[in-house]
Amino acid sequence: MGAKLEKIGAELEKARAKRAALDVKIKNLEQKYQEEENTEIHDMVHAANLTPDQLAELLRMAAKAAPNPQMLMETVKEDEQNED
């Protein structure tokens, strides 16, 4: 092989090794993020002193009360058109 080809091959292997290391780091950070998010949710539920049934009911009520994002965007567009 030519020297230039060997150099490019070495750089390629080095880049692949860095990518593999970053993939592992990303996976670990995603796991830590998920764990921390779950801990925060647990702490909020615990602080509110909710039973699992109460939490489920609260989530059902919130889902019914929350505005539909698509409907909200249509309303905003209509308002903007009416202003013109």
Rank of each mutant, 00 (worst) to 15 (best):
H46L: 15
G9Y: 05
L29H: 11
D43C: 02
K27S: 15
M61G: 05
K18H: 07
A15F: 05
Q54M: 04
A47M: 03
I8Q: 11
P52G: 03
K7I: 11
A10H: 13
E78S: 07
E40D: 09
H42M: 06
L29C: 14
D53T: 01
A65R: 10
M44F: 06
N38Q: 10
I26C: 05
A10Q: 10
D79L: 15
A63N: 09
M44K: 09
E83N: 06
R16I: 11
Q70Y: 15
A65G: 09
L22D: 10
Q70C: 01
L50R: 01
K25I: 07
V45E: 00
G2T: 13
G9P: 01
M73C: 01
L58E: 02
E40S: 14
G2W: 04
L22F: 15
R16C: 14
M73H: 07
R16V: 09
N28T: 11
K27T: 13
Q54A: 03
E78H: 02
A17P: 00
A63M: 09
H46Y: 10
V76S: 04
E80T: 04
A62R: 08
A56G: 06
Q34W: 01
D53A: 12
E37G: 03
D43T: 08
K77V: 07
I26Q: 13
A10F: 13
K25H: 11
D84W: 09
A20K: 13
K64I: 06
I8C: 06
D84K: 15
A56V: 02
E80G: 00
N28D: 10
Q31I: 10
L50D: 01
Y33R: 10
A10K: 06
E74Y: 04
D53C: 00
P67S: 10
L22A: 15
N38S: 04
K27N: 13
L58S: 04
K4L: 13
Q81K: 11
E30T: 10
Q70T: 13
M61Y: 05
K4W: 07
D79E: 12
E6D: 13
K32Q: 11
A66M: 07
K77A: 12
L50N: 00
M1V: 05
E11Q: 06
E74M: 12
N28Q: 11
L29F: 12
M1D: 10
R60E: 15
K77Q: 15
Q54I: 04
K27I: 08
N38H: 04
I41C: 02
K14W: 02
E30V: 04
E40N: 15
K18S: 09
M61D: 11
A65W: 07
M73A: 15
V24Q: 09
G9M: 14
A3N: 14
A66W: 02
E6L: 08
P69S: 10
N82M: 08
R16H: 14
A62P: 00
A20T: 12
E80W: 07
D79Q: 07
E6V: 08
Q54S: 02
D79V: 03
V45Y: 01
